[in-house]
Design a protein around this nucleic acid. Structure first.
Lengths: 210, 210
DNA sequence: TAGATTGTTAATCGATTAACAATC
DNA sequence: TAGATTGTTAATCGATTAACAATC
C-alpha cells in the first residue's frame, strides 16, 4: 500500500472520509468496502482498491476498523499537519471562504488575506486579517506560505498568480474563471464552476430532447 | 458533429470559451486547435476532437472563425437560453453566490433564495429575494424551476435535497460536503472543495518527500 | 469448517493520443 | 502546387471492473 494514487482516487478519498465521520456511520465500529460503496453509489471493488492504497488495516471477514480507517485517510490527506495559506481578493467570495470555519478540518489554515482595495486593509473577516497587497510577498516569505487562494476577478488572476509564484507559493487554488500559466513545478487547481454548470445545463438539455 | 460528448470534454468546453472571450484573443479573427492547445497547455488533437463535437465551422488551413466558434460553444452549453434556479442556504457562501453577477453569463439565473432562518426573509442579496423555506415548493412549482443550489450546512443537505426533488428540481448543485442520495433521473453535481484540497495537499506532501 | 471480505492480478472499457486522408 | 489544418479512423494508455487466491 501507499503506492502512488491516481487523481481520481485521491479525489474520492475525502468523500469516504466524510461518510465515515457522518451521522449515518455513527454507531459503526467496523466498515466494509461494500457498505461504503452502497452508501455512495460506487462500485465495491473501486472502493476496496482506493482504500487499499491508503490503509493496510483491512481484515478479511470484518472489514476496516472505522477509527483506524479515518485516521489513515486523515494522515494520507494531510489533515493532521495543517497547511498555512493566504488568500487574495477579499470580495464576496473571498470573504465567504475566509468566514468558512470548515477548512481547518481539512488542515487548511488561511493566515492572511490581501486586497487591492486599500480601504479594506486592517479589517478582519472570520478572524483573518485583510492586508494591503503590497505586504503579500513579505508575509509569504516570512511564514513560508505554500498555498495561495485566488478569488479576484478574472482579468487580475494571472498577475496575482505571478506574484504568488514569485513569493514562493507552490500550489494555487484558483476560483477565478481564467486559465493560469505557471512554471512546471507549480500546481494550479481550478475550482471550475463554469464546468460544473456545463454538466448541469447539458443534463437538462439532454433530458428535454429525448 | 453534435454527437454525445464525454463529461471530460464537456467540462473543457467552458475553458475554451473562456479563453476565446479573454483579452489575449481579442484581436484574433481565426483560431486553430493548435493555438488554443498551446494557450491552455493541452494537446492539440484533444482540442480538435473536442471542438469537432460542438462546431462544424472548422476550415482546413485557417481554423475556426472565432465568433462562430464562440457562438457554437455558447449554444452547446446553453448559455443563450437561461436556466432559472433557486438557492437554499443564505449563509456566507450562499450570499456570495447570490451576489456574483457572473452566473448570468453562463445562462444561470437565480430567481429566489430560501433559508431556515425566518429573520432573513424579506431581505435581498444581489437583487435576489430571500424567502422562508416554506415557500420553496410553491415557487419551484409555479416557476417550473429545474435547478437547485444547496449551500446549507452538511447535516441539513439531504433533507433540503429531498425537498428540492419533491418540488420538481431535476439538477442539484451541491456545495455542502455531503453525499446526497437522489432518484435515478436526478443529477447531482458536487462542488467538492475537499477533493480540490486533497489534490493541493498531496502535491505539497509529495514535493517534500522526494 | 464455511463464508465473507480482503488484496492482487487479469480483463475490459473509455479517454487520450497518434496516424492519415481530405481540403482550403 | 505546397503546406497547414481539419475531421476521422486506429493505437495506446490508464482507470474501472472482474476474477480469484489468501485469510480471518
Amino acid at each position: 500500500m501507499l503506492t502512488s494514487v491516481s487523481v481520481q482516487t485521491l479525489q474520492r478519498l475525502p468523500v469516504y472520509l466524510n461518510l465515515l465521520k457522518s451521522e449515518c456511520m455513527q454507531q459503526a465500529v467496523y466498515v466494509s468496502s461494500k457498505t461504503i460503496a452502497e452508501s455512495l453509489g460506487l462500485h465495491e471493488i473501486q472502493v476496496r482498491k482506493d482504500l487499499a492504497s491508503v490503509s493496510s488495516g483491512g481484515k478479511p471477514k470484518v472489514g476496516f476498523s472505522k477509527i483506524t480507517l479515518i485516521r489513515d485517510l486523515e494522515t494520507y490527506l494531510g489533515y493532521n499537519d495543517s497547511n498555512d495559506a493566504i488568500l487574495v481578493g477579499a470580495g464576496k467570495l473571498g470573504k465567504a471562504l475566509l468566514a468558512y470555519d470548515g477548512f481547518k478540518e481539512y488542515g487548511l489554515n488561511i493566515v492572511a488575506a490581501f486586497d487591492n482595495d486599500e480601504s479594506l486593509a486592517g479589517q478582519k473577516e472570520g478572524n483573518v486579517p485583510i492586508l494591503s497587497l503590497s505586504k503579500m510577498n513579505d508575509i509569504c516569505d516570512r511564514m513560508k506560505i505554500r498555498i495561495g487562494i485566488i478569488t479576484v476577478p478574472s482579468p487580475a488572476a494571472q498577475s496575482i498568480c505571478d506574484q504568488m509564484v514569485a513569493s514562493g507559493i507552490l500550489a494555487v487554488w484558483n476560483f477565478a474563471p481564467a486559465h493560469l500559466d505557471v512554471p512546471e513545478h507549480i500546481l494550479v487547481k481550478n475550482e471550475n464552476m463554469a464546468a460544473s454548470l456545463a454538466v448541469l445545463s447539458r443534463h437538462l438539455m439532454d433530458k428535454f430532447t429525448d
